[in-house]
């Protein structure tokens, strides 16, 4: 990481923000050997499914790929009554090529932003977060604070997906790690907010 050296006093520390995102999540899985087909069908419907280790986003949704032939599609949060494949309107035509599973409740989503957010994450993230090596557009699955975390560099900061059951544990850990860097109060943001450039 090429973050700045630690400056002398807390007053000099620029803030770090941790925001919570509410969104729907659909896990899309290609059947063995059908990934190309699935990607084409999705593309025909205007949804870009990225290659492994990358994200693809439009104004109101974001897809990421951290497992071969599998994607997480982040969308606006579902209505409580909705469930299953009807979350993806183009799905019927793609069903032969794979499966779509609603995971909206499975993930808690945080956005870490601020010039020193990568330094904060280095307290628990074993990946090399040098901006040159992990620039906007990349995603990875790893372990932080002893729990699985999906990490993606989005235009607005670092997106962190953690299992719903460990979300509080992870949030508390992140808050403790970020505290010396000047943690700012959190707000609730949307998928669209992820895809805007970081304002600083």
């Amino acid at each position: 990481m090429s973050g700045p050296e630690y400056p002398g006093s807390p007053a000099e520390l620029p803030g770090v923000r941790v925001d919570e995102c509410t969104m729907g999540v659909v896990e899309i899985i290609a059947r063995p050997g059908r990934a190309g087909e699935l990607v084409e069908i999705a593309r025909g419907r205007g949804i870009e499914l990225p290659t492994f280790g990358r994200i693809a986003y439009s104004s109101d949704r974001l897809a990421l790929c951290v497992r071969p032939d599998r994607w997480l599609l982040l969308l606006a949060p579902p209505a409580p009554a909705a469930s299953g494949p009807d979350r993806v309107d183009w799905w019927e035509s793609a069903a032969q090529a794979g499966a779509a599973v609603d995971q909206s409740s499975a993930w808690a989503t945080l956005l870490l932003a601020g010039p020193r957010s990568r330094e904060v994450l280095a307290r628990g993230c074993r990946l090399d977060l040098d901006p040159l090596l992990f620039p906007v557009g990349l995603a990875a699955a790893t372990i932080m604070a002893q729990v699985p975390v999906i990490l993606a560099a989005v235009p607005s900061g670092l997106l962190l997906l953690t299992s719903a059951s460990t979300a509080r544990h992870f949030r508390e850990w992140l808050a403790a790690a970020a505290k010396p860097f000047g943690l700012m109060p959190q707000s609730i943001i949307s998928v669209a907010d992820l895809c805007r450039s970081e304002s600083g």
Partner: peptide, 10 residues
């Protein structure tokens, strides 16, 4: 509190 993750029910 950070010694071991705690999983909480919905």
């Amino acid at each position: 509190q950070h010694f071991k993750p705690k999983r909480r029910l919905p």
